[in-house]
């Protein structure tokens, strides 16, 4: 064994002090959130700094699962909001997978005029601040009668993700040797068969990454959902936002928020940790978490 010098030992201690302090900063707000979710009442000041296990309360969860809204309430019931968000999320996942595969394939493997310009245009257009586009989308939705129907929001999410996902899938597909396609083409496979039978199994990792992202996205998008949906059709994100809005005194209860937030944060965190490997791929291609 190598012997540590004095400076090594000092550095080791410094490194660990840093890490311990860092962990405290990282974890304490989250532990506080968990603690708050199980604290009775509606006051933040009532949340103990050191979790008080003798005084745990499921009050907020009882509220979340038993509260029944009526058309005039400021808050819809949480299970309803949950189901609506789930629908958007599932539809969005299907849409994103379809478009990512088909468009990524076209841009990676097919030859056509204006390919580069098209991709670049899509990516640049996407940089335009989306709030302004929302006014146009609002009108479009009103014209088609899509307003206040949560499922149609998946269209907007799917469309919005096309440019970046295309870019990512295209990059991934280009690393797959073209000789595979060519061999299949000689055997008489059509381009769509090549995509389905040869390329698709190979791009499952990146598509999985995008699918998970597409599934999680709608749970936490507040603005679009709050503008396009009436309160009785509200989603989880809107529900959460409203419970911490001090202006809505009737429903304001930060502890309800903590409890509701915990419910969706935990599954998402678990998925994030499982998907770490793919996320790192997304990161190295310059991806950014939204």
């Amino acid at each position: 064994m190598k012997k540590y010098s004095v400076s090594d030992i000092i550095l080791k201690i410094v490194a660990h002090i840093w890490l311990i302090l860092g962990s405290i900063v990282v974890l304490v707000p989250l532990l506080w959130m968990v603690s708050a979710a199980f604290t009775p009442g509606k006051l933040l000041s009532g949340v103990p700094l050191i979790p008080d296990f003798s005084n745990l309360s499921l009050e907020h969860y009882t509220y979340i699962f038993s509260y029944k809204s009526n058309p005039a309430s400021l808050l819809a019931d949480y299970p309803g909001a949950f189901v609506r968000t789930l629908q958007i999320a599932v539809l969005n996942t299907i849409g994103v997978v379809f478009f990512a595969v088909i468009t990524g394939f076209a841009f990676a493997r097919l030859r056509f005029k204006g390919k580069k310009q098209m991709l670049l245009t899509m990516m640049i257009l996407q940089m335009f601040p989306s709030f302004m586009g929302m006014i146009a989308l609002f009108l479009l939705f009103r014209t088609f009668g899509f307003l206040n129907k949560p499922n149609y929001l998946a269209l907007i999410y799917t469309a919005g993700s096309i440019p970046y996902n295309t870019f990512l899938v295209r990059g991934f597909m280009r690393n797959i040797p073209k000789s595979l396609d060519e061999a299949a083409a000689i055997d008489g496979a059509s381009p769509l068969q090549i995509l389905r039978l040869i390329l698709f199994p190979l791009i499952v990792p990146i598509v999985g990454f995008l699918a998970v992202g597409a599934f999680m996205g709608p749970w936490l998008d507040y603005i679009l959902q709050s503008v396009f949906l009436q309160p009785e059709q509200m989603t989880v994100a809107v529900w959460l936002y409203r419970t911490t809005d001090p202006l809505l005194t009737l429903v304001y209860n930060p502890l309800n928020f903590m409890a509701g937030a915990l419910l969706i944060a935990i599954p998402i965190m678990v998925v994030q940790f499982f998907m770490q490997k793919y996320m790192v791929y997304g990161l190295t291609s310059g991806a950014e978490k939204g």
């Binding site: 506080w32 999680m216 936490l220 959460l240 930060p254 998402i268």
Partner: peptide, 14 residues
């Protein structure tokens, strides 16, 4: 990084 950003931000608001 694993916690959804909107949730962490609203927790920090509190």
């Amino acid at each position: 990084w694993a916690v959804p950003a909107m949730i962490s931000l609203m927790v920090f608001r509190n």
